[in-house]
């Protein structure tokens, strides 16, 4: 079973929820797809870590063969090639390596090279396997790293899998949830939080995924995120209180369900509901 945990913005509690769900599930695999700022490993502190460098294809121009005909820069829809003093110059951070420039170059002046954009780290913490993607600073897109990580997932379809998604609802998030059986949306009790919840709510509906919400940082009084769930008939899987003890444990990079029976029960209950919902879908 593959459970994706997502939210419309950062700092809502995706990592808290996905790390703890993986922990209470036992024999689970945790994927940190938040490749711009992966932090699940800070909680799991995995051991026996191996690293794999992830590269993308980048065009390289041989200036001696380039006669400045501009066929490549005219072709490039991403404007990743400029023609400066009759030589093609590639801007790798704008390139979406489609290979088109190589095909249209009449002088075979363009070849492909591999450029590292980040890495995948794999390790173990108790009975949880941790896979974290890390994008190098300044890189435009983490999608190639997420794709490479999720190849692992495809190879082991029966694992109990938790996917800690990047924030937002852009390409990297879509890539992360594409194979998920269920999406857990984490929401904050603010009007701003509701706006972000609505974004991911729309996304999971477009992807036709079963979903439910975990309300984080709940305190007494009004909860606009809960009101949104009621209004849109979104199932609420659990409520995590705005709790000093939780904040303290979390900031000391403890996995709360491993040290607090209260939170162990809370996340076990969320997981149980998700499993039931998935079994009803199958």
């Amino acid at each position: 079973m593959k459970i994706a945990v997502l939210s419309g913005k950062g700092g809502t509690g995706k990592t808290l929820v996905s790390v703890n769900l993986a922990s209470v599930a036992g024999n689970a695999v945790y994927y940190d797809c938040d490749v711009e700022e992966p932090n699940g490993h800070l909680f799991f502190k995995p051991e026996a870590v191996t690293e794999e460098i992830i590269t993308v294809t980048t065009p390289e121009v041989n200036a001696e063969l380039c006669d400045g005909c501009r066929k490549c820069s005219d072709f490039c829809k991403f404007n990743a090639i400029a023609s400066i003093q009759d030589k093609a110059v590639v801007f790798p951070d704008v390139c979406h390596p489609c290979g088109g420039c190589m095909l249209v170059c009449p002088n075979k002046a363009i070849t492909e090279t591999q450029r590292p954009i980040g890495k995948i780290m794999r390790g173990v913490s108790g009975d949880v396997t941790i896979t974290s993607g890390m994008l190098n600073m300044g890189e435009e897109s983490g999608v190639p790293i997420i794709r490479a990580m999720l190849q692992d997932m495809k190879a082991n379809p029966n694992d109990m899998t938790l996917i800690d998604c990047p924030p937002g609802s852009a390409c990297v998030v879509m890539e992360s949830i594409i194979d998920a059986d269920y999406c857990v949306l984490v929401a904050e009790p603010t009007v701003f939080g509701v706006h972000n919840l609505a974004m991911v709510h729309e996304l999971v509906q477009i992807f036709n995924k079963p979903y439910g919400v975990v309300l984080n940082k709940c305190f007494e009084g009004e909860n606009p995120a809960e009101a949104y769930c009621l209004e849109h008939q979104v199932p609420v899987l659990g409520r995590i209180p705005f709790d000093q003890e939780l904040g303290h444990l979390n900031s000391n990079s403890e996995i709360v369900s491993r040290v607090s029976s209260k939170y162990k029960t809370l996340f076990e209950d969320v997981l149980k509901q998700v499993k039931e919902a998935v079994s009803q879908c199958q």
């Binding site: 820069s73 829809k77 990743a80």
Partner: peptide, 15 residues
């Protein structure tokens, strides 16, 4: 021409 380019507008405008 780069005004509405989906990406690389600065490069194209500089061209």
């Amino acid at each position: 021409e780069a005004m509405n380019a989906p990406g690389g507008a600065g490069i194209k405008a500089a061209q």
